[in-house]
Computed example of a mutant assay.
Amino acid sequence: MRLYKLPNGSILEKENEFHKLVDVPAWDELINRDDLHAYLNAEERHGETVSSDVVLNECLAPIGTQEVWASGVTYYSSRLARMEESKDAGGGDFYSRVYGADRPEIFFKATPNRVVGPGKSFRIRRDSTWDVPEPELTLFATTSGKIVGYSVGNDVSSRSIEGENPLYLPQAKTFDDCACLGPCLYVPERPIDPRTGIRMSVERDGIAVFAGSTTISEMKRELQELVDYLFRETSFASGVFLMTGTGIVPGADFTLQVDDLVKITIDGIGELANRVAVARD
């Protein structure tokens, strides 16, 4: 099942039919349930059918008041890229160590107001010279730490700033409109299949300038392992979104440009498409 957040309510997609949910709690309370799949399965029977065009054209980022956190260096390809970008600053060894360490890299990514949904523009920093999209499976975990849903995420990053010094990571990762999330919250009965594919393309003036793919099985860490570390000594009253790292890394000759169109697709969840805008004046 897929749950969509719209300006006027919540829509559930099941077996290619879209139903408006009636008499359900507001978004935060609705999704922050350990029994979310069973709850939605029961509520679906009471909702009126709506047009798929309306849902896909009007859906928002599937987030309420939750924070967005992120994981780093969870794929081998990411380890290599981070080592290369930071070698001149002497930070390459940090990324090699964290890839093999027991404790994963987990960092704060965005407050809800810095997250953009499907069709909206995200931003790149004015003081950055090398910017990349990072397509990532994004988990939603409830207050208890149970993974109940999945979404498509884009952990937009400045590689020039992070590469200059690893301690600049917060500036490279967190700024206005720095994260994309959507198009829905995928709520399966069982955990997502590790064979699930992730694909990304970047179009510039209608021409593809980058394309790449990976699968969740290429990730070094287990999904629940990442959540468990996040929840150590940290609580989330309305649940939390956790990006799980990227296995698709453009080469050093690629950087995002204003008006590029980034499309990220994860099997079973859907496509998230966003254009690039420059930071605000």
Rank of each mutant, 00 (worst) to 15 (best):
S128L: 05
E233H: 08
G239M: 04
I147C: 13
N165T: 07
S160H: 11
P194Q: 14
E136V: 01
G163P: 04
F231A: 07
S121L: 06
A237Y: 11
Y150I: 11
C180S: 05
P194W: 11
D205E: 13
I192V: 15
L167F: 11
G119F: 00
D177T: 13
V209N: 09
D176E: 09
E162N: 11
K120D: 09
I192G: 13
F231Q: 10
T138M: 08
V227F: 07
G163V: 05
A141G: 03
S238Q: 11
E164K: 10
N165E: 14
R159H: 06
D193Q: 15
S217I: 14
Y229T: 04
S201I: 08
L223A: 02
F140W: 12
S158Y: 00
C178P: 05
P183W: 05
L169Q: 09
S158D: 06
R204V: 00
L181K: 01
C178I: 03
I192D: 07
A237M: 10
S158R: 00
G163M: 05
A141S: 03
T174P: 10
F122A: 00
P135D: 00
D127R: 01
E222Y: 13
V152W: 01
M200I: 06
G163S: 02
R204G: 00
K146T: 10
I147R: 03
R199L: 12
E218T: 14
T196Q: 13
P133A: 00
Q224T: 03
P170I: 06
Y168M: 08
R123Q: 15
E164T: 15
S157Q: 04
R232C: 06
L230Q: 07
V148D: 03
F175S: 05
D131M: 07
V116F: 00
